[in-house]
């Protein structure tokens, strides 16, 4: 029984640690959006044509955060 409790504890600790990844992804997403805004303010005429690139960048940055969220979910509910 103690082993089960320890495993549960480890699961939750692991899930919490994995959730840190979401924060890291948030930094990445903010970086992408912030740099895009800085560039767009410098050259607003070129900004419109680059929104697709912006979203692709955001998607890539965000996907890794989603992976860490997934790891947390797996630890919580599937392992």
């Amino acid at each position: 029984m103690e082993l089960v409790a320890a495993a549960a504890l480890g699961k939750f600790i692991g899930a919490g640690l994995a959730a840190i990844g979401s924060g890291a992804a948030a930094i990445g997403v903010g970086n992408v959006a912030g740099n895009f805004l800085a560039g767009a303010l410098r050259n607003p005429s070129a900004a419109g044509s680059q929104t697709a690139t912006l979203f692709i960048g955001l998607a890539f940055a965000e996907a890794l955060g989603i992976f860490s969220f997934l790891v947390a979910l797996l630890l919580m509910f599937a392992v």
Binding site: A5, A8, L9, K11, F12, L73, L74, M76, F77, A78, V79
Partner: peptide
């Protein structure tokens, strides 16, 4: 809380 998690683990993620 722990037991709830354990119970959910029994149910698992519907996605999996």
């Amino acid at each position: 809380a722990a037991e709830a998690g354990h119970e959910a683990a029994k149910a698992g993620m519907p996605q999996l």
